[in-house]
């Protein structure tokens, strides 16, 4: 007869949560499937094709892009990774702690807080992969990718972009008593980031101080890195800085998340 055991490590513990997330997603996937396909299509059509018609595509002004659509496609992609992470690490995290209290059930078992977070982040990464994968497929016919490899790498980079947002926002959500700050997080955090981090226009257009501000945001690093890959204009040292920035942010967010959720569940 099989015996109940403690997992060998935090990752093995997180693997035990696979069935939980799979069963939950089987119930909800239909609700998100359509929007995750239709949303990127609408953005590409409205912003890229229709608005792009009015914007002359001088590659010099558009960081090397031959059309406005090709310029904003990587911005929209990185924005999609960010928005998916925001969505999956705000209300859902609060629900698991406060409304359904599912995390309390998980930590009453042999699973550690780290395993619980890893499991949840694993699901966030699955969602990022799904929404960004759809995005890449929708945009491909519009000829926005210079090379196939660029498209593949641009897709893979979205996991890093997503994680760099997921861990700190997860940590923030894990310590909240109620959900009211989320409205501000979206309106004053996510939307301005999306609008001003170089997704829709080259940040050279901003005033000097705003440019510095934009370059300090994680989304700009994600957008710029993605754009290098889709336009095949990779600058090695700049790419390294982008990756390092995102890795450090994800790592700090992870440490903060473990701290906040441990204090919440295991005090």
């Amino acid at each position: 007869m099989a015996e109940s055991t403690a997992p060998a490590n935090d990752l093995a513990g997180a693997a035990r949560l696979l069935d939980y997330w799979a069963i939950g997603y089987r119930r909800t996937w239909k609700g998100t499937a359509i929007s995750s396909f239709v949303n990127p299509l609408f953005y590409v059509l409205a912003m890229g094709v229709l608005l792009g018609d009015y914007i002359s595509g001088d590659p010099g002004q558009l960081e090397g892009a031959t059309s406005y659509l090709a310029f904003i496609a990587p911005g929209l992609l990185a924005g999609q990774a960010m928005q998916t992470s925001f969505g999956e690490t705000t209300y859902p995290v609060m629900g698991m702690i406060k409304w359904q209290r599912v995390y309390y059930a998980m930590t009453a078992s042999p699973l550690s807080v780290r395993s619980v977070i890893l499991g949840h982040l694993g699901f966030v990464m699955f969602r990022v992969g799904l929404t960004c994968g759809v995005f890449v497929l929708v945009m491909a016919p519009f000829g926005v990718f210079e090379t196939v490899w660029g498209a593949v790498l641009a897709f893979l980079v979205q996991f890093l972009v997503g994680l760099a947002f997921a861990t700190p926002i997860y940590a923030f959500s894990a310590g909240l008593k109620d959900e009211s700050p989320f409205a501000l997080v979206f309106r004053l955090g996510m939307i301005p980031l999306f609008l001003f981090s170089g997704a829709f226009f080259p940040i050279d257009n901003l005033d000097r101080w705003m440019q510095v501000l934009a370059q300090a945001t994680p989304l700009w690093h994600g957008v710029d890195l993605t754009r290098m890959l889709t336009l095949d204009t990779v600058d090695g040292s700049a790419a390294l800085v982008h990756v390092a920035y995102l890795v450090v942010l994800a790592a700090l967010g992870w440490l903060w998340a473990v701290h906040r959720l441990s204090r919440r569940l295991m005090s």
Partner: peptide, 21 residues
């Protein structure tokens, strides 16, 4: 601390999985 969006059986099943069974 039950997951109210899952069925009775699913709640028991997923919990058993946490124990490595």
């Amino acid at each position: 601390t039950l997951d109210t969006e899952l069925t009775v059986r699913e709640n028991l099943y997923i919990y058993g999985r946490y124990f490595g069974l």
